[in-house]
Design a protein around this nucleic acid. Structure first.
Lengths: 107, 107
DNA sequence: CGGAATCCTAGAAGATACTG
DNA sequence: CAGTATCTTCTAGGATTCCG
């Protein structure tokens, strides 16, 4: 299952939806539109299958689709946020480590 | 950085090394030998570059190499374990969700 | 023992264009 | 608006073999 969490976007989507239900394009803009619609759809489908989110489609014009975290999805917020915090706190350390690794000329 | 955590083995390795320094083959057997040596090496190298582990090689015969978590690596244990727990606790729910998704014939 | 070298596959991710 | 379709690229991961 960790592989699911590990894919590039799932974690981000969970954290974004943590603030509440969003529609497809809202979700996408919250991600800076850096994700291709196909990839977003794909990711959302996987998350739906895994029971992390629910997808509610409205038969309207213009069409509307809303994505909401399930209880299972909600329960993921905490541990995921913990890692997010870790990454944030240690961002500098990581960059330093990588720089060091690429720089063998230690004086 | 989350992508690094997301790869298939890094999380597992951190949690295994949490119990203490291990050598290449020990590490591998702790993973049930389910990982190809190439992949293990590759993963360990990435982790080294990211400053999560240190690699100490002994110029002996037979050769020995020991892997130890750095402070940075140690700091990852908690949040990673949190996700591990989550996955364990919700394993059943996940399977159920997937089964449901593949089975539209709800009676 | 601890890797490195080689070859291969699956699938995630991205760009672009199109449709109900 | 919310996708789908198609094509392409990239690389993690895997199996096997060989070497110091």
């Amino acid at each position: 299952m960790l592989d699911r969490i590990g894919d590039k976007w799932t974690t981000l989507i969970v954290l974004i939806l943590a603030d509440g239900t969003l529609r497809f394009s809202e979700l996408r803009s919250h991600m800076g539109n850096r994700i291709a619609p196909k990839v977003l759809t794909q990711t959302l489908r996987r998350m739906e299958i895994d029971g992390l989110i629910t997808r509610q489609v409205f038969a309207e014009v213009p069409p509307r689709a809303e994505y909401t975290l399930t209880d299972l999805g909600l329960s993921l917020i905490e541990p995921l946020a913990a890692i997010g915090d870790w990454a944030e706190v240690n961002a500098a350390a990581l960059l330093a480590a990588r720089a060091r690794a690429g720089d063998s000329s230690a004086t």
